[in-house]
């Protein structure tokens, strides 16, 4: 099944790189949506069917952690699989994000890492829908 993916990062180059790495990892991508902060991401989520979001943490306007909290509050999208892609190195912060139901990928990343995490996240999401 093709995945509609939302990539949220304030760096346009990083968004391009994440999309390219998903393709290199062999992820079956449908439509790709992009946002440069959490607020834009919520607008994309309101307007489009999205299966998976890859989200940076440090962004202007609305950061990634605020975005995750807002998504989890909205019943229509509360179960959206979210992967945080960040340079964050603090285990304390990473565990806090995981408690909010997000997986974590550390920058710099490889196609193998992204592929494995996406596969794991989307399998769980599919199982939950059965």
């Amino acid at each position: 099944m093709s995945l509609n993916v939302l990539v949220v990062d304030d760096s346009a180059v990083m968004r391009s790189m994440i999309i390219r790495t998903l393709e290199m990892a062999g992820v079956d991508i449908g439509q790709v949506f992009q946002a440069s902060n959490g607020e834009e991401a919520l607008q994309q989520l309101d307007a489009n069917w999205i299966d998976l979001a890859l989200v940076d943490i440090n962004m202007p306007v609305m950061n990634g952690e605020q975005l995750i909290e807002e998504v989890r509050r909205r019943s229509a999208i509360a179960d959206l699989p979210i992967i945080v892609v960040s340079t964050e190195g603090s285990q304390t912060r990473i565990e806090r994000l995981q408690q909010k139901g997000a997986k974590f990928i550390h920058k710099p990343f490889t196609p193998e890492t992204i592929g494995q995490i996406v596969e794991g996240v989307t399998e769980v999401a599919n199982d939950n829908q059965v």
């Binding site: 760096s11 180059v13 440090n58 340079t87 190195g89």
Partner: peptide
């Protein structure tokens, strides 16, 4: 943008 992102990644990885 690419160069700043690289600096950001190096910084995020050296601190821990």
């Amino acid at each position: 943008d690419a160069f700043k992102e690289m600096a950001n990644v190096i910084c995020g990885n050296i601190l821990p």
